[in-house]
Amino acid sequence: MITWRRVTEDDFPLLRRWLAHPHVARWWNHDTTPEGVERDFGPTARGEEPAEDWLALLDGRPFGLVQRCRLAAYPAEREALAKVTSVPDGAMGIDYLIGEAAETGRGLGSRMIRAMVERTWPDYPDATCVIVPVAAGNHASWRALEKAGLARVAEGDLEPDNPIDGPAHVVYRIDRPGR
């Protein structure tokens, strides 16, 4: 069973290591210096940012990271996404990674995504859906989202996380059950 705990500043060395792994760096493209990780994750860890960073744990051991937010809390990103697909009020967004290369290809990504989506409904009673844009070339991410129950709803151009990628993205979505 996957359990969760919020990222704290004590986790920054782990995040630095994960973000430096080639399989993560290819898609996340983060500054892995102590200053860069502090800049990118510190405000959220301290509650100064409206997003949440969660470590996914299996048998008490961290294996992945999920970032979750209300899309309305980030108007520029929401507006860009709305040019590609419908973004209803109450829409949530997630981003995710599996930290160690040895943990990839085992189904943990789809399990982690599914677990966070299932957690989102009670955590955010007004959440209408979860929307996830993915760089078009990230086929492993597509498969994880599909196995987690999300459906592709759009394709379009968005600003890439990694400048080596073009703007082409695919967008996945899952609606709150019963909607």
Rank of each mutant, 00 (worst) to 15 (best):
M1K: 06
M1G: 09
I2D: 04
I2S: 03
R5V: 15
E9S: 15
D11Q: 14
F12S: 01
R17H: 12
W18N: 01
L19W: 12
A20H: 09
H21R: 12
P22A: 09
P22E: 05
W28A: 10
N29Q: 13
N29F: 15
T32D: 00
V37H: 10
E38G: 09
R39H: 12
R39M: 12
G42I: 10
R46T: 12
E48M: 11
E48P: 02
P50D: 10
A51R: 13
L55M: 08
R61A: 11
G64M: 07
L65G: 03
Q67T: 13
R68T: 12
P75Q: 03
P75C: 05
E77F: 11
R78W: 02
L81C: 07
K83I: 02
V84S: 10
V84F: 10
D89R: 04
G90W: 06
I94L: 12
Y96M: 09
G99M: 10
E100R: 07
A101V: 06
A102I: 03
G107D: 03
L108H: 02
G109E: 02
S110R: 03
M112C: 08
I113H: 00
R114N: 00
R114P: 00
A115R: 08
M116C: 11
D126G: 10
T128W: 06
T128N: 04
V132E: 01
A136G: 14
G137C: 07
R143G: 07
E146W: 08
R152A: 11
V153Q: 05
A154Y: 00
A154I: 01
L158Q: 04
E159V: 15
D161G: 15
P163S: 15
I164A: 15
D165R: 09
G166K: 13
V170G: 08
D175C: 00
D175F: 00
G178A: 02
